[in-house]
Structures are given as C-alpha cells and as structure tokens.
Design a protein around this nucleic acid. Structure first.
Lengths: 189, 189
DNA sequence: GCATCATACTCAAGAAAATGACTAGTCATA
DNA sequence: TATGACTAGTCATTTTCTTGAGTATGATGC
C-alpha cells in the first residue's frame, strides 16, 4: 500500500482518467513515484472499490470513452492518516550506479557511454521541469509564489525532482570524465 | 533480476557473509541499492545454485558459524554482461515526497515534523559517508585518488550518495521553513 | 494510401520485493 | 539475573511490480 497514496495525491487537483494519470506519472508525479499504466488502472479499480476515489463515465464521440476519477472524502481522510504516519526512508535504486560500483573491475567503456546518455536524459528532464515550474508559479517569482501561492505542493516536489536531476547530470558527467581519463592514462583493459 | 547484480557488485571486493553483506547494504551499498537481510540470504542461495558466487563454511567458536561468499568467474562474466546492457532509468520513490505533494490540501504539521527528522537523518548519513570517503581514499586528496587510485568504484557511488543526501537535507530544511512560514502567515488549518 | 501515433483501456503470468515470525548462542549492562 | 543488543541465519506468505499481449478508433504524416 504505497502506490495508492501516490495516486490519491496525484488526483488531488482535479479529475483524471487512468490514461491522463499515466501521463502525469511520466512527468510531475515521477518526482516522487513511478508506475506503469497497468498498475494505475489496477490501483484505481481497487481505490474505487474501497470508496477512496469515485469514477464517472464520460462518453466521447471522437475518442474512446473514458472514466474520470476524483478523490472522495474517505480518500482525503486516508491521505490525512497517511501524512501523519511515519515515512519509510527513501533510497536510491539504480542499475547504472551498480555498474559504476564495478568500474575498474569490469570493463568501463560501456558504462562511460551510458553515463553520457543518462546525462543527456537528465538534461532533457531539467528543461521539462523548468518549464513546468514556470507554468506552476505563473507570473510570480519563486519566493513570492512559495509564500503566497494557492497550491505549492506539486511545485515543491518538482523542485526536488529538479535538484535530483541536476545533481544526477553533474555526477554522470564528472564520473564519465574521470573514467575516461583513467582509461587513457592507465591504458588498461 | 536486479538485486542479483547489486549483490555481485557488493561482493567484488572480498568475501562476505550474508550478515556482513546486510551491513554493507545499510551503508555503502545503500547508495545504489537497498535490500533486507532476508532478501540477501535468498539471493545468495540462488546465486550459489547458479554458480555465480561460491560459498564456504567458516566454523567459529564463540559466534555462530557463517558462510563466506565470493564472486566466481561466471559471476564476473555475468556482471560484464550486465554492465554492457541498457540500464533502466533511475527514479525516486519516497513517501515523504508524496506527503509534501499534498501539502496545503492536507494538514501540514506532521509533514513539517517529518521533514525535520529526515533532515537530521540525512545529516547523520552525510557524516557517515564523509568518513567512509576519507577512509576509502586514504592519504590522497580526491582528485589524486580518482586519477590514480586502485579501486574507485565504491568511492564514486559514495560520492553520488553524499550528493543525494546533502541535497535531500537542504531540500527538507528549506521546505520545512516554507511550510512553517505559510502556517503562521496564512493561519489556516 | 499506408503507416504510425495518440487515446483509452483490459487481462494474465511471472518475477521481484517486502513482511513477519522464528531459532539460538554470546556479550555487555544495569 | 534478566534485559536487550549483536551475530548469523531460515522459512513462509503476501504484496507489489514488471512484462507482454490484445482491443478498438481516429488523427496525422509521408
């Protein structure tokens, strides 16, 4: 029971279909959770059965029909309960880091390549988040927005995501340089 | 098949028992993977069955006997294969971030408290990692060590962990301040 | 005019991870 | 002298996540 709260949190600001939610889990929500569409559909079904979200059918002419979900009062209460409970510590889980750990014991060339790819991906995400943040805060500057904005929750998690991506990009690039230099000077493997 | 590579990577630098490995997964290895002791024991059993690690019984007088594992050539080959394969993108998954996302929709007081606790925990981890890094690089300064050190893999992942924790601490503290200020000025919920 | 992308989902199977309960001896401490 | 922490694990169950395949329609691009 962990994805459920991420879904409830994502659903706090309006009605979304499973499909739209899946999109959200690719950008903004990705800053605090990750899930595939199938999981979201399944979770929404469960949440509805438990009365934490309510869905309604929307008939569309030119597109397939869809079901829009919103958080119920029971769902809000569940989030309240969740917010007050202890959090599990967060942790990193990353294939690429595992590979870097083996660097200088195992061939490094493919790892260097992946570090650079990852850095580009992070760069792209940084731009995306920059845009999202500007959009969320409208005209106001950040300080101002954080003090007086109506809804800062999503903004705050995007800030965390942005910092994470920047840090990740910098680390990837630095490590790639370090490994490359060692490759040329040591001339090993 | 994901934990397996983390275990193999952790086991690259010597022989460890499941118990010792569990300790390592609480500090250094935690920078790229996380697992409970039970998972490690189970994974070691599987890896041994597949010949990727080899275990040997060590009889102890004053402590329970233990089994020490090392990576076999087949295990090293598996890591090689893994290093060359594409990596899944890394992602954050954090209860606390979910809670922050709901901030200003759901009661913030408990979240502020948790942010501060989390910041202290991060601080402790930062110190721990600082010590670990100094220990890993010995006398050399960082630049020097990264250029000429024998084994830099674990050092690099610790650097990533350190950056992550520092940033996490800074973010937690900043968000706590932001939420507190809003609490007093808005005087809502 | 054909291919691919976008919307909007569902179903099933399997792999991986998390949880909880248990064993059993040693050591330090209050 | 009991209390709890440390070493060193095992076993079983449940939950969660991932993978892969499939359905159906309309719009867009070459």
């Amino acid at each position: 029971m962990a994805l459920r709260h991420a879904v409830l949190a994502a659903l706090l600001d309006g009605e979304y279909s499973g499909y739209q939610l899946a999109k959200a889990f690719d950008v903004g929500v990705a800053n605090f959770w990750h899930a595939l569409p199938q999981q979201l559909y399944a979770e929404l079904t469960k949440l509805e059965k438990e009365g934490l979200v309510a869905g309604r059918q929307v008939v569309q002419e030119t597109r397939p029909n869809k079901r829009l979900f919103r958080v119920t009062d029971a769902g809000r209460a569940e989030l309240e309960r969740f917010a007050a409970a202890v959090s599990k510590p967060s942790f990193i889980r990353d294939d690429l880091l595992v590979k870097v750990h083996t660097a200088d014991r195992i061939g490094t060339a493919p790892v260097i390549e992946q570090l650079e790819e990852r850095a580009s991906a992070a760069e792209a995400k940084i731009e995306l988040l920059g845009k999202l943040l500007r959009q969320l805060r409208g005209d106001a500057d950040e300080e101002e927005f954080l003090r007086r904005g109506e809804r800062i929750g999503p903004y705050l998690t995007c800030l965390r995501g942005l910092a994470f991506e920047q840090e990740h990009r910098d680390w990837c690039l630095r490590i790639a340089v370090v490994l490359k230099e060692r490759q040329s000077t040591h001339a090993e493997r």
